[in-house]
């Protein structure tokens, strides 16, 4: 397992509900892939209500991230290495 805290992330939407995070991604980005809960990305397993939207924007990945004590966030993370797998998601 990896730690998101060690990545160079930017918080696009702080401390929200998971639904708000999913809506934010769908509303603000055009290249979106839907993955199941537990999808592995950046060596983490995504928590959330599936299907979970993940966006690709340039070289960045935009995803919802859930922390037990802090709620849900939308993060922008540089992630060229994840794009091949994401784009293969049907």
């Amino acid at each position: 397992m990896g730690c998101i805290d060690e990545l160079n992330y930017e918080i696009l939407l702080p401390n929200s509900s998971f639904k708000e995070c999913a809506e934010y991604i769908k509303k603000n980005f055009s290249e979106i892939y839907y993955v199941p809960a537990g999808y592995r990305i950046f060596e983490n397993y995504l928590i959330g209500v599936p299907p979970i939207p993940i966006a690709v924007d340039g070289d960045d990945v935009i995803l919802p991230y859930v922390k037990p004590c802090h709620g849900s966030f939308v993060l922008r993370i540089p992630g060229k290495e994840e794009m091949g797998r994401l784009r293969a998601v049907k």
């Binding site: 809960a37 959330g48 209500v49």
Partner: peptide, 9 residues
């Protein structure tokens, strides 16, 4: 809401 996300997962 976080708990709901874990339940769904």
């Amino acid at each position: 809401d976080t708990g709901i996300s874990y339940l769904a997962t």
